[in-house]
Amino acid sequence: MSNPYSPVRATLEDVIDETPNIKTFVLKPEREMPFKTGQFIEMTVPGFGEAPFTPSSSPAVTDRMEVTVMRAGTVTELLHKAQPGAVLGLRGPFGKGYPVEEFEGKEILIVGGGVGLAPLRSLLFALFNEMEKFRRVILCYGARTPADIVYKNQLKEWSEREKTEVLLTVDEGDGEWKGNVGVVTTLLKQVTVDIPNAVAVACGPPIMMKFTVLELQHMGFGDDRIYLSMEKNMSCGIGKCGHCRIGSFYVCKDGPVFTYEQLKEFRNIWD
């Protein structure tokens, strides 16, 4: 019997501290769990509960999965206490990921905020795996303060890659920060993109996504070229439990990646 509610046992192999409240968990599931970049999984703290996350690792790696988690609620609080060797559970993958095929031949403007860079890192890995297919990748990433920037070393490494640009900003600098200060949309004003041949992908806190969409529209992106990773409280992951509705969609099965075109008719999508 295939039971979609039963998690696969996964061993926590490593915990990487990213920021004071964000950690990346490296998991080895008992059986391989291939996923498409942008799809999500439900991670179980045994005997306690589950929460949905989008893996932050490359979809090309199928025997390990990395999940970057901000401490925000009860499940994530427990996850943050977990030590290597701990047993966790994974269900999934669920939903629709990024339609990477549709990005071929295009410039890809990626806009991330805070821990929202997690799914985007998986997307970046997927793009880097076949970079010959894409014209250019521009990553605009914003964090609250320099200490809140995730994947610090990798950001530098990516900026040195061919056909790749990385722009960073913080809402609030510190003594050492020499880069841009301001919300992530201030970075969008600094990039030049070949709009007719580009797509934009955004993930971050709702307020950041809301203003990013406005700025992208202002730049000339069509609503069907703006891809968003939506967060709702997906419980079952399979379109049955009713929690994650946006308009006529369930985020778990119709998303989590949507175009703004799909969502714009609905109310309060950023609440």
Binding site: S235, K240, C241
Partner: peptide, 19 residues
């Protein structure tokens, strides 16, 4: 009405999930 929540419990050393 079909909405449900998955609830996890530990009972007698066993991890159980309820709908």
């Amino acid at each position: 009405c079909h909405c449900f929540l998955l609830i996890d419990l530990e009972e007698a050393g066993k991890f159980k999930r309820f709908k």
